[in-house]
Write a protein that binds this DNA or RNA. Structure first.
Lengths: 191, 191
DNA sequence: TCATTAAGGTACGGTCCGTACCGTACCGTA
DNA sequence: TACGGTACGGTACGGACCGTACCTTAATGA
């Protein structure tokens, strides 16, 4: 109340924080312009002056939410590295992100620019650690050189994402992760 | 107008047909109760007496839309079989289904019963032909016996679906299909 | 000091979901 | 053939939400 009126960047970031919080709590379907405005202590005008519509705000807020990129593990063993990555994605703070991403992928609709941003965010952040652990596995002779192909290196990630998307779960049973690694990933990338 | 008033099953199927048509034309976001009612020549009451909400109607209509299960090809060669399946999914009448499925997967929300139905529909229809072509490949000595594991056999399908879901495309470039098969699928299932 | 810029407040049109209410056609039964 | 139950048709409405318009008010800087 007594606070001075915020302007420019300060207000924009308050809006983004509020939107990211709403995304985490209620997912994209629950991301309401009114609620974001209220939570940020402002009104819808301030939002619409910065983002053209709800989808754009959602994508921008998702960037805040999923900013943390995973640190690739280094256990000295490809199987354990892969399991560690999958478990980090599965149980870590990334799990609400799955639901959010799922909502965004449809809510964005047919706006190619926003979709491209989302794809960058989802792909880039997820691909890098897999390339890292595969690179080390190749150096140890645990994986074939062809496994450095991004499509190959990230197969386990894609399969896990498929579980999230089609089953709508926010957490997958650990036995599934083991199965993905032992039945698919290791046979595929192994030397 | 002069037509006699429809009842029971006849009306229900008219509604489902109308809903499936709307799904195919406008996707799940465009599936409006008012439009379905109008297209079926009835009103919203008749719909809500049969399905509790829009999501349930969408899932039911999707069943009509994706009823056709793919006939597994038999070219005598695993690579060509896999490519044929992927191309059928990519270019066939299944391509609007991808957008619809994407919409449904989020629109259903957190109702586990509906989601389970969707998962059945999406998994069962897609898995069978892959198991068939792998079975023949194993018999020819083209694939290892472990490739009959459903998770292994359907890897190419999952990867393609991932392209649909994350990129939001209704059609994927054919080169991507070839890459999926040559870089991932054949190295994984090959003897 | 004063004009300009950006924020706050509020109200509104439009769309859609889901519900309620009532009149009316169809159906089996006596 | 008369009758009562059931299901359909029509319409109206409340509520939620998006996006826009318009005006007032505070901050900024020249």
């Amino acid at each position: 109340m007594a606070k001075t009126r915020r302007r420019g960047t300060e207000l924009a970031e308050a809006i983004l924080r509020a939107a990211a919080d709403e995304l985490a709590e209620a997912g994209y379907p629950g991301l309401t312009m009114e609620r974001v405005a209220q939570r940020a202590g402002t009104n819808k005008n301030a939002i619409y002056r910065r983002w053209p519509n709800r989808a754009a705000l959602g994508v921008a807020a998702y960037r805040h939410l999923a900013a943390d990129t995973l640190e690739p593990p280094d256990t000295g063993n490809l199987r354990e590295d892969a399991l560690a990555l999958l478990r980090a994605i599965n149980c870590g703070q990334t799990s609400p992100a799955a639901r959010v991403l799922r909502g965004l992928l449809t809510g964005v609709g047919d706006e190619p620019e926003l979709r491209e941003q989302l794809h960058q965010q989802a792909a880039e952040g997820g691909t890098k650690p897999w390339l890292a652990i595969v690179e080390r596995a190749v150096a140890r002779g645990e994986a074939r050189p062809g496994a450095r192909h991004p499509r190959v290196a990230t197969v386990a990630l894609v399969l896990l994402r498929n579980e999230f998307l089609t089953r709508g779960l926010t957490t997958v049973d650990d036995a599934v992760l083991v199965e993905l690694v032992d039945e698919v990933y290791l046979p595929l990338v192994g030397a």
